[in-house]
Amino acid sequence: MSIVTRIFAPEASAASFRLGTLAKSFARAGHSVSVKTVLPPRALRGTAKDSGNPFPITRFPVLRDRSGYVRGYLQYLSFDVPLFFRVLLGPKQDLFIVEPPPTTGFFVRLAAALRRTPYAYYAADVWSDAAASTGASPAVVRVVRAMERFAMSGASQVLSVNAGVTDRVRSIAPRSTVVTVGNGVDTEVFNAEGEGALDGKVAIYPGTASEWQGAVIFIEALEQILPEVPEAKIVFLGQGSDWPALQERSASLPPGSVVFTPSVPPEQAAVLMRGAATTLASLRPGTGYEFAFPTKVFASWGCGTPVIYSGPGPAREFMSTHASEARLGIACEYEVGKVADALRQVFTEEHAGADERQRTSEWASRNVSLDAVAARVIQAVAL
């Protein structure tokens, strides 16, 4: 079988971690597995250690946007169109597992049909809803939704990361067979063992920052508490379509209080998160995307670091349900005052000790590990 994805290690993203663990799990279970993906950005090419993996990785050049990310229709098509021929003319497979965007699912469905090969579509997100939430034109949303429906409807299984996504998939593509496999983090990378590169009153917003996530609320909250906690700092670690707006909003704050750091390899991201007082995650209300569950919170818990989560959605309910089991952090409404109170509380109290962080990390390993997710995927596709 073959995993098809426009993003993979060493690029740090939820998809990279999830699919990397899945590929390793397939290989450990005795399946022949390969990965079809892209050349990493130039800055990360020396960090790709493909030869150390128990499966072959085929990488191809691709267009990237100015931030070095494969994002945008031309960028997607620069991967998808050649991929169509690689699937059509490449070695016979028992199954393809396809990571979004829907354009990739669209072309794989066409090629797989010609090869008479089944594929599973990994619904880690609902792209048409995301497009609508970022203000895309109705025409664009309709096209994305049609492609998404086409990709999901042709799949032997749609693999969903949570119950909210499952409901949306069934609404968009009612005839699909949907299996909720859950989501989590690679606890071999994101754990409490090892050094922490940051210290003091530092909060990290890791991963992608898109408009629908509304990460600007943390900058606005930081502005409120800086007179009381002048050494407080937020580090945005990753990339995202909202970065220009976030950088513009932070320009009025004291120099160094908000830092933007491009994506780093997962191991380095884990070091940074282990050293932070807290990590940050958010979901802007009213976008139609309230079913999303930011996977960055799993990585933080794996490192033993608590989270400040602002917004609606299943993450708040999850944190409330499991609050007595581990030090998961603070979940609050999407209001500047509430977020400022949470930051103030985290920055003025003692950091969690090594023992407490270790307990949180061990809890994450038991409850939100990608190994368990991969086992459910393998069972669902039943190779």
Rank of each mutant, 00 (worst) to 15 (best):
M1E: 08
A9N: 09
S13T: 14
S16E: 05
R18V: 04
F26N: 03
R28A: 06
H31T: 12
R45H: 14
K49Q: 15
K49A: 13
K49D: 14
R59H: 08
L63W: 14
R66G: 15
Y73E: 11
L88R: 11
G90C: 10
Q93W: 04
W127Q: 10
S137F: 07
R142I: 05
R149F: 15
G154W: 01
S156A: 14
Q157F: 09
V158T: 09
A163F: 15
V165L: 09
I172S: 08
G182S: 13
E188S: 07
E188T: 12
N191F: 01
A192P: 01
G196C: 07
K201A: 15
S210I: 03
I217T: 00
L226N: 04
V235S: 09
F236Q: 04
W243N: 02
E248I: 04
V258G: 08
V259D: 08
T261W: 06
T261F: 11
S282E: 04
L283F: 12
E290W: 06
P294H: 06
V297S: 01
P306I: 08
I308L: 06
A315V: 14
S324P: 01
E325V: 10
E325W: 07
R344D: 11
Q345Y: 06
F347K: 05
H351Y: 10
A354Q: 12
R359W: 14
R359F: 14
R366T: 14
L370C: 08
L370A: 07
V373S: 08
A380T: 02
